[in-house]
Amino acid sequence: MIPDRFKGLVFPAAALAALEIWARSVDLHSDSLAPPSAIAAAFGLAISDGAFLSATRDTLASAFAGLIIGGAIGLAFGIALGVFQVFDRLMEVTVEAVRPIPSIALLPIALIALGFGYRMEIAIIAFACVWPILILSRAAVQEVEPRLMEVARALRLSPADRVRKIIIPAALPRIFVAFRLAAGIALIVAVTVEIAINPIGLGAAIMAAQQGLQPDLMLAYLVWIGVIGYGLNAGLNLAQRHLFGRAALVGDPA
């Protein structure tokens, strides 16, 4: 019997072995596929010559800049909408009208307004990150324990103090969850924008490998992008458990 821990490894290992054997048996020379051993070699080469590193830096820098800008806007509006019900009700139609615009549809607008490069990519990522953070932080603020708000009223805290001393600390675990989800979205949008049009970062690099008919390098980039996505997600999950423990599990939509 295989211990449970290793069961998960059986399937990918078998798939890789099958692919390797198949590629060798038909003596594969393809523009679109490569045997796993060639992918591993390309992977090693790209790590050692710094190609992965510089592309990853570009992508992650844009993703985080967009996340911070979009997150700050989303958080400010989310808290404002959560605290002031009147504001929330008045903005309802506007939010409902703008939110469903797919972030990638803004790509041509950002392109003519900002040109190629970091700024255009960051603007699109920021737009994509505003909404999950706005919606989730609004819900987090609205669901702050009502007795805490009564305490705030009894202490006659000013609205600014109420937000700073009561609401943000109480809603922080769920706000972190919102940021974690938005970080995943930021990476997805960054890679998508780069693949579609923007000539920087991982997305552009994987497109260049495809157009250069280097399937081994292209698939190595695919694996690397997967590793980055997995690492980001795992790191944020770990941070969440470490910082907030079970508190963050309340209302976690993931």
Binding site: G184, Q210, M218, Y221, L222, I225, G226, Y230
Partner: peptide, 12 residues
């Protein structure tokens, strides 16, 4: 595979 940005499959 879940956190993989799916658009990365486009070049492939």
């Amino acid at each position: 595979l879940r956190p993989l940005p799916v658009s990365a499959i486009i070049p492939v």
